[in-house]
Amino acid sequence: MYTQALNARDTTAPVAGPEEAARADRFQARIDAEERIEPNDWMPEAYRRTLTRQISQHAHSEIVGMLPEGNWITRAPTLKRKAALLAKVQDEAGHGLYLYSAAETLGTSREEMFDQLLAGRAKYSSIFNYPTLTWADIGAIGWLVDGAAIMNQIPLCRCSYGPYARAMVRVCKEESFHQRQGYEIMLTLCRGTPEQKAMAQDALNRWWWPCLMMFGPPDAESQHSDQSAKWKIKRFSNDELRQKFVDATVPQGQYLGLTFPDPDLAYDEAEGRWRYGTIDWEEFKQVLAGNGPCNRQRMKQRRDAHAAGAWVREAAMAHAAKRARRAEAAKAAALQQAA
């Protein structure tokens, strides 16, 4: 569903010798020529680390992102909504798996990435630490959270790292259904009873600002963007993507007959863009630091699910080993008979 610009600047890069510097220059030349980098190609260690972190965080976000929505599967209002929500949550699991696979090609094992998430060493998108209090939140997540994710992920389809870019192509194809189903939920609520419309408004009020935070800190404060842009991992800045999202989303909200919880939101005729108010970055920092409304609950759910699945993984491994042993024994017996 989403990756957030969370990576701190990489300060652990080793001092490069002349040979390393020449390789780095050739590498940059390939990037500048819009060539894709593939898993076995030489790459600077910092590029590998940056991508491993970004792709695994992206994968974690998809996996944790199943929790707020999974919360409503058993309470979806109709069979149609339930089927759609199930399919959407299953897609998020799939997106997580595509992304873990892409990250693994950089040399970090799946188990290690799981450990990082479960031990609380890896981050995931701040947005999933907010609660889904009503059914309208499912609409708002599809419309806004997936809408923001699409803004962010479409440029990633052209990311310099081949496996990540290819995973993003698949993800983006599937993401469009997510956004449309969310908007349709909002539309249905807005055309319903006054109580239903109020529910939709309440969801928009709660999700709007956290969605704007999804794009990460303002450009003036995000130090790592320069290097990511140079490596063509990131093609647009946080603020550029945020602005695109606001411009695309405000008219959609107006069509629903809803208002945005921002008194400063105004159309700038000269620029042809929507100006929005100040984002509460302190809230963003708190949520990232683990103090959002649901951080602890999300992590506990992930840990519990992983622990509860341990016997399944163990049993599957034992079964596969037993089958392999028996096949081996049968082959040996056949050979003996033939001899």
């Binding site: 299953q90 798996l97 696979s101 599957a316 089958r323």
Partner: peptide
């Protein structure tokens, strides 16, 4: 793409999903 599975049967099943 790729995936993790303990054996061929489960790999096919997971690939489908």
């Amino acid at each position: 793409g790729s995936l993790h599975a303990v054996d061929a049967t489960m790999a096919l099943q997971a690939a489908r999903d």
